[in-house]
Amino acid sequence: MLGYLLKRLIQMILVLWVVSVIVFLMMSFTGDPVFMVVPIDATDSEIAQARRLLGLDQSLPVQYWKFLSSIVQGDFGRSYVFRQPAMTLILERLPATVEMVLVAMGLAVLVAIPLGVYAGANPNGRLSRTIMAGSLLGISLPGFWVGMVLIYLFAVHWGIFPSSGRGDTGEIFGLRISLLTLDGWHHIALPAITLSLGTMAILLRMTRAGMMEVSRQDFMKFARAKGVPRKDVLYGHGLKNALIPVVTIFGLQLGDLIAFATITETIFSWPGMGKLLIDSIYRADRPVIVVYLMLVALIFVVINFIVDLVYTLIDPRISLK
């Protein structure tokens, strides 16, 4: 167990290192950030000086070494635009993104699991077919377009939901959370629904496939034969075993939600770190992009690790190697 954890830890660090190299190289080949910092009428010597201040006059390996050593020390540089530490900027916006992702995930699970169990238990019913067609439609819809349609209908046309922003937030442990106020829930509803649709469809399909697979097993028939009520068999015996592939997808979907949150946040002007990323891409604000990518890479690596651990909890047949 300890050996496994150590091996995984080394793997995780290795992945993060590879990501840092790729991020650094890609950033070095994109435009010249010096023009983001100097005024338009700067002279050549002023540009050269700014370049020296940013460390852009040195060779790539030297720049990478400085980049890596400052990252390890937790120094990600300052945003060219906001003149603040890039990490602070991202961390300030992290709670907004996390709460939207969590609400979307919760919504997806609440809808997808019961419908998936139903569709898996009654594979040929009319309702099951409708559910499946609906889920396929959910996968086929461009998420940003759904968001727009929701904005048009609920905000522009009927005016019952706000079209953008985060609304009032409550404070807990120094974090500003929308979920503590009614106005916050009012604001988060449309973006969270938009974000959840794709994940909802995928979780539903996985749950259904898992249930269909499990239904064929002998222990399900046995449980029914000994007189366990159908509902208990489905949720108690069936769902538990059908959940294993769903948990993997759950982890991957959490990552996908964080990625798609960039688009949803842009549409709804939700002040999260995804919107900050898109804005920073427009402004070529390199330090912020780098922090975002490294932080998201860290989150993904940790999620994958947790998923592997959860595996062994659900299914004792799988052992850690």
């Binding site: 992945v15 991020v23 890609m26 950033m27 080949f29 994109t30 991957l252 990552g255 996908d256 964080i258 990625a259 798609f260 960039t262 688009i263 891409i281 992009i289 990518l293 998201v296 890479a297 993904f300 690596v301 994958n304």
Partner: peptide, 14 residues
């Protein structure tokens, strides 16, 4: 282990 959309977004931004 990274969502395609994020990798593509990052490449395009570069």
């Amino acid at each position: 282990s990274f969502p395609s959309i994020l990798i593509a977004l990052f490449l395009m931004s570069a």
